[in-house]
């Protein structure tokens, strides 16, 4: 039965999981906001980050303080390349592309996911890679809950990064530019904002954040070619719940999903825990496409 202590433990664990989800989902929401596409290769950025961190830290012996940013940069660079080479046709000539746009985006990102997973599977190998720990403490007491030290350390870094991102989007010129392009691409470019640069920026940022999530979690979930599939599906659910393209919505939905899953696994059904979020996703797209908070108009 659910005791107070268990409930507190579940809540803290759920919130921490939610933070990690946030790192993934915010990038996906940014991409959707600016480019109006779902990046079906988002999980593979996570995977790339996990490998980058593990290889740089464990094999090359780079200190952790540098290994984490390296993973971020690796993901960001990959994101930039992908945007430059594959996403340009999405808005290069808006008029004539029109019809095939959505199909193109799904096909290309879907195939990119297939490509990266299988490439890593062949080039590095299908088995999981053990990553070096972030800190040496194995157990930490957080308020009422006992948690793995890895998780706590990762959560602290995540919090700091999320705060930075929020600050950046809110106050910097480029942050404003991102928001402007999300609201009206044409209008923003008429106002002198370089929408193309914003797209590159957003894709790099999203790739970097997902890679960082992969790096931070790799001591807990070891890097393997398909390690990104699971967090990717979570972030699809979150982005839909938060209202496609809304950043604050995505963040709140991340925390909510973390908590709901943490309780649902104990209270409802452990076996089917992975289906809850997916059912929510379908119900939301059908009945409340603007998400929990309804910031945007209907897109469907």
């Amino acid at each position: 039965m659910l005791t107070g202590a268990l409930a507190a433990d579940l809540a803290v664990n759920g919130l921490v999981t939610g933070l990690f989800y946030g790192l993934m989902a915010i990038g996906l929401a940014l991409i959707f906001g600016v480019l109006r596409i779902v990046n079906f290769a988002h999980g593979e950025f996570y995977m790339v980050g996990a490998y980058a961190y593990t290889i740089v830290a464990a094999r090359l012996g780079v200190p952790l303080v540098l290994a984490l940013p390296t993973a971020f940069l690796f993901g960001a660079a990959l994101g930039w390349v992908v945007e430059r080479t594959l996403m340009r046709p999405l808005y290069a000539n808006i008029g004539s592309w029109g019809l095939m746009r959505d199909e193109y985006a799904v096909i290309v990102t879907f195939a990119l996911s297939l490509l990266l997973v299988n490439f890593v599977d062949k080039a590095i190998g299908p088995y999981a890679f053990r990553a070096p720990a972030l800190i040496s403490a194995s157990r930490v007491v957080v308020g009422p809950a006992l948690m793995s030290g890895q998780k706590v350390a990762a959560a602290l870094v995540t919090l700091a990064v999320l705060a930075l991102i929020a600050f950046f989007l809110r106050f910097s010129y480029w942050g404003r530019a991102v928001r402007a392009v999300s609201q009206n691409r044409l209008g923003a470019s008429l106002a002198g904002i370089d929408a193309t640069a914003v797209s590159s920026l957003v894709f790099s940022l999203a790739g970097g954040l997902a890679a960082l999530a992969g790096a931070l979690l790799s001591p807990i979930i070891n890097a393997s070619p398909d390690v990104g599939a699971f967090p990717a599906i979570k972030s699809y659910v979150i982005v839909v719940l938060g209202g496609m393209g809304s950043i604050p919505g995505a963040f709140i939905a991340s925390l909510l999903l973390g908590i709901v899953e943490s309780f649902g696994a104990v209270l409802v059904s452990y076996q089917y825990r992975d289906t809850f979020g997916l059912i929510l996703l379908i119900l939301f797209l059908l009945f409340r496409p603007q998400g929990l908070f309804g910031e945007r108009g209907r897109e469907v």
Binding site: V38, V106, T275, L278, I279, L281, I282, L285, E299, V300
Partner: peptide
Amino acid sequence: VMRLRGPYLALTTLSFAEIARLVASN
């Protein structure tokens, strides 16, 4: 899913597919 298009339809059908697979496997 009649009314859904593009990324929305892709996400919905992908979720349906995963649910079906998870149900079969569990």
